[in-house]
Write a protein that binds this DNA or RNA. Structure first.
Length: 929
RNA sequence: GGGGAAGUGGCGGAACUGGCAGACGCGCAUGACUUAGGAUCAUGUGGAGCAAUCCGUAUGGGUUCGAGUCCCAUCUUCCCCA
């Protein structure tokens, strides 16, 4: 066989032709159903990661499949190009972020092209282009005009490493670290810009118009954190109102003290002079703590009595006001009524400071709670006691767990009395979008001494980033020191004014990129209504789960806010003209979402070693350490010898796990002799490899897989095929550099079986039917896999069909027509997965360009049906025999055959069958004795 | 602490609504071709047993003619929330 599969030769050739003939241009076509497929846009870090391939190539396969099924498919690509990496690189290596970014984009564009995806590059959008961020700024102005953007002073999260503030969603984990760099955040009081996401809390909770993974919906629901209760107004003795939110107004009579957050504005006023010094010291100390240090349960509670008192409006009781850092100013109103009997944190606080505890809910079927003996709060249901006229009120939740009868009754009473009202509280906060960095879209606002805060007129957009800036090693934004940028004239009075120097969170840019893709060059608005009226919304979105409460919330908010600002009005006119149903058309950006998993690093075993020396207690002092190929021939362990796998390596010690699972620490010094094959006698401990756990790929771990190298070595089809075959897409898993061979063999075999031509051509009807059956069964399995994102099963089915073709070629006789049809169908089925080889072999089998414009093969259930099946005979549910029978066997015949089976007879043990069950669709009989 | 997802050969993973567990592939084993093999081809490959057969989907119960799949409890891992 002279002609071999050389992907390096065929792939660039087809890539060039597809591009030249604009095969993948997507053009509005009202006569065809549209499908907008989208995968999350990459950040231009410089190199396409294997994770990008894993996210994009299966999405591409699915988009290609839909295309062959007759949809007008749009599958665009672009870059989320603003952000800190560029700026940090600029500081470190003295390259301008723009240069760094656009160089990276060029490289990634090239890498993306090798993938062979159907990206329509005419629609590429780059968020750092002025033509793009002009519209990001424009959106900000629309939101500002509609009251959805505002500036406020607040205690905000600040990342000291990134030197900028962060949105609440970008602070992660128990230690409240920066989502980007992992540094724990600190609190700062700053004036910042916010978008009013909380205005959409209720609508964001509603996922009824979208088909998203439950996991994401749950995460968003938790994040929004809706709780129902009441807002009650307490007053200080001086009469200053203090709003308190509680989910349990039925416990109001149990409030024995109040707690203010250290940042609460009333702290200063209520503090008595003799307590002032102590309170001020406490407030200052709290400011230095992280939120998690403050609120962790189980930690010893701290707090200080202010000396002031409040009046509980339900019973006019005088209760002390404390300051404690477990109350956060950012949640609710920053003040709580403390009900120690029924709230665990209040309980701990009361115990700590000997504050009174009063029972107001008596649980069912328990002895009366005793405040002196309780070891924890009772947060559950019961009956109201010690609560005046409400004593005896039933405080149980309704069956759905949502409504508490006592809560409703008390809330109604509060409203009647005018001391409180039913209220809903959300954990969700407004989106902080100010970033004190350079490489982002400038917030289009100027500050004028005379006129105040003035938006930049739309006609003056974009507010351009000045190119000539000096980056400071601290990361502080150079815009603050750029005189020309900073000083401007007020658009209203023409007098001197200064510009806002903060830029916008890059999640602003990525909240609407799927609209910009529709018309990246359009200048009459953020997007061309002729395009959006046809294409929007996104039909299928794919990407990682890590954005569940960030990007995926922001983009939903954005679309809803755009709708309410009237941005979609021109779109609506076009959509109606096209006869589309516009109900809910502008409510959600992406109708279906699917999350793929992550490719992890390849696990690596540690070196196997034999160490000689002596034990010193638990520790083993080694005289020599020898790396061996296997432990089979190693002498057995003893007092002077340790053998096993190196699990960990530090400067002078090796943690060695012996085959029986025992860990020994082997200590070495400068006299220890190391012998490592390939390193000669000069080897050192540093050359010994240690075990590497499966984890995220990272440069420091040395477990990064470079797609460029893989493509060069195996071709893009192999890389695509392997990524789709080897993992469950939604799950991902560790890379396996050997496993890829399976896909290499698959494509080599496909090549050989197709290029070598048909078998002899003499026809055997049975073989013909078998082959055609297999082909149609494969159509079904491949289609089902694509439909359900089960790419691995689709590829498995294609491999099976290839195996069948090999067998047919060797042993069976089929006509040329049948063979050609089988081969042609296989190539069509392969086209979404491995587009290059499919195109090449399509041409070589005498078909016209291009396979990617062919319709998807039709599945015919009649051809796919088996005519013989294996009848499984069970006795008491255990398989005892298998009999070949016609597929259309009658129930009587099947039962009779089963009962006559020797093996079944043997296991029936002479007993009479009590029942015989026949399952037609499974071809099975179960005899019960 | 609350909620959710998952646990199947040495490995990645199949198994549609309860119906032949382990498809497909990696690896491994044996053989062939080779100066050679990290190439290719053939055969085998869940475990135990000479065998008939038995045991096997984290563990223990349950429902069912029949359970990887449904129910209850337990253990482990991961995620989210506190």
């Amino acid at each position: 066989m002279a002609d071999k599969y050389v992907p390096q030769e065929i792939e660039p050739r087809w890539a060039e032709r597809w591009e030249r003939e604009e095969l993948y241009r997507s053009v509005v076509d009202p006569d065809r159903p549209k499908f907008y497929a989208l995968t999350m846009l990459p950040y231009p870090s410089g190199d396409l990661h294997i994770g990008h391939w894993y996210a994009m190539s299966p999405s591409d396969a699915r988009a290609r499949w839909l295309r062959m099924k007759g949809y007008n498919v749009l599958f665009p690509m672009g870059f989320d190009a603003f952000g800190l990496n560029a700026e940090n690189a600029a500081i470190k290596r003295n390259i301008h972020p723009r240069i760094w970014t656009y160089k990276n984009i060029d490289n990634m564009r090239r890498q993306l092209r090798t993938m062979g995806a159907i990206f329509d590059w005419e629609r590429e959008a780059v968020s750092s282009d002025p033509e793009y961020y002009k519209w990001t700024q424009w959106f900000f102005l629309q939101f500002y005009k509609n009251g959805l953007a505002y500036r406020a002073e607040a205690a905000v999260d600040f990342c000291p490493t990134c030197n900028t503030t962060l949105a609440r969603e970008q602070v992660w984990g128990d230690d409240r670290h920066c989502e980007r760099c992992g540094t724990p955040v600190i609190k700062k009081d700053l004036e910042q810009w916010f978008l009013r996401t909380t205005a959409y809390a209720e609508e964001l909770l509603d996922h009824s118009q979208i088909d998203w993974p439950e996991r994401v919906e749950t995460m968003q629901t938790n994040w929004i954190g809706r709780s129902e209760g009441a807002e009650v107004t307490f007053r200080t003795e001086d009469g200053d109102p203090m709003e308190v939110f509680t989910t349990r107004p039925d416990t109001l009579w149990g409030a024995t003290f109040m707690v203010l957050a250290p940042e609460h504005p009333l702290v200063e006023k209520v503090t008595a002079s003799e307590q002032r010094a102590e309170v001020e010291a406490y407030v200052a100390a709290a400011a230095r703590k992280t939120e998690i240090e403050r609120t962790a349960e189980g930690k010893e509670k701290t707090g200080v009595f202010t000396g002031g008192y409040a009046i509980n409006p339900v019973n006019n009781e005088r209760i002390p006001i404390w300051v404690a850092d477990y109350v956060l100013i950012s949640y609710g109103s920053g003040a709580i009524m403390a009900v120690p009997a029924h709230d665990q944190r209040d309980f701990e606080f009361a115990r700590q400071f000997n504050l009174p505890i009063r029972i107001v809910i008596q649980p069912d079927g328990m002895d009366d709670l005793n405040p002196d003996k309780m070891t924890e709060a009772w947060p559950g249901e019961g009956v109201m006691v010690n609560s005046g006229q409400f004593d005896g009120t039933d405080a149980h939740y309704s069956d759905d767990g949502k409504k508490n009868h006592a809560v409703s009754v008390v809330t109604a009473w509060l409203e009647e009395k005018g001391i409180g009202h039913g209220a809903v509280n959300y954990r969700l906060r407004d989106w902080l979008i100010s970033r004190q960095r350079y490489w982002g879209a400038p917030i289009p606002i100027v500050y004028c001494d005379k006129c105040g805060t003035i938006p930049v007129p739309e006609a003056d957009l974009p507010v351009l980033l000045p190119p000539d800036v000096d980056f400071r090693p601290t990361g502080e934004s150079p815009l603050r020191y750029h005189e020309e940028f900073l000083h401007t004239t007020c658009p209203q009075c023409g007098g001197p004014a200064t510009r806002e120097t903060d830029t916008m969170d890059t999640f602003m840019c990525s909240s609407w990129y799927h609209y910009r893709y529709l018309s990246p060059l359009y200048d009459g608005g953020p997007f061309d209504p002729e395009e959006s009226g046809y294409w929007m919304p996104v039909d299928q979105y794919t990407g990682g789960i890590e954005h569940a409460t960030m990007h995926l919330m922001y983009t939903r908010f954005f679309t809803k806010a755009m709708r309410d600002c009237g941005v979609f009005e021109p779109t609506d006119a076009v959509a109606r003209r096209l006869g589309r149903d516009t109900t809910h058309l502008y409510d959600e950006p992406m109708l279906r979402l699917y999350n793929q998993g992550m490719i992890l690093g390849e696990p690596r075993p540690g070196d196997l070693i034999v160490a000689r020396g002596a034990f010193d207690g638990e520790k083993f002092n080694a005289e020599s350490v020898q790396v061996v190929p296997s432990l089979h021939d190693a002498p057995s362990p003893s007092d002077v010898l340790v053998a096993g796998e190196v699990m960990k390596r530090t400067e002078t010690t090796l943690s060695v796990m012996s085959p029986d699972g025992r860990m020994v620490v082997v200590d070495t010094d400068e006299h220890t002799a190391f012998s490592i094959p390939g390193f000669g006698e000069d080897a050192t401990i540093n050359q010994i490899k240690h075990h590497l756990e499966v984890e995220k790929m990272s440069k420091t771990q040395g477990n990064v897989v470079a797609p460029d190298e893989l493509v060069e070595r195996y071709g893009a089809d192999v890389v695509r095929g392997y990524l789709m075959f080897a993992f469950r897409w939604e799950q991902g898993g560790p890379w396996d550099s050997q496993g890829i061979q399976g896909v290499v063999r698959w494509l080599n075999d496909v090549w050989a079986v197709v290029v070598d031509g048909a078998p002899d051509g003499t026809s055997d009807p049975e073989a013909e039917r078998d082959l055609r059956r297999k082909v149609h069964q494969t159509i079904r399995r491949v289609s089902d896999g694509l439909e359900s994102f089960g790419f691995n099963t689709s590829v498995a089915a294609l491999m099976e069909l290839k195996n069948t073709l090999q067998d047919v070629k060797r042993d069976a006789h089929v006509s040329l027509a049948t063979w050609d049809e089988a081969v042609g169908t296989m190539l069509l089925l392969m086209a979404p997965f491995t587009p290059y080889i499919a195109e090449e072999l399509w041409q070589r089998t005498g078909h016209e360009f291009s396979i990617h414009n062919q319709p998807w093969p039709e599945y015919d259930p009649e051809i796919a049906a088996e005519d013989m099946i294996t009848l499984v005979v069970q006795v008491n549910g255990k398989v005892r025999d298998r009999i070949e029978v016609p597929a259309d066997i009658s129930e009587e015949d099947a039962k009779q055959l089963a009962l006559e089976s020797d093996a079944a007879q043997r296991h029936m043990d002479g007993k009479e069958p009590r029942k015989v069950i026949f399952i037609a669709k499974r071809g099975m009989v179960n005899i019960v004795v």
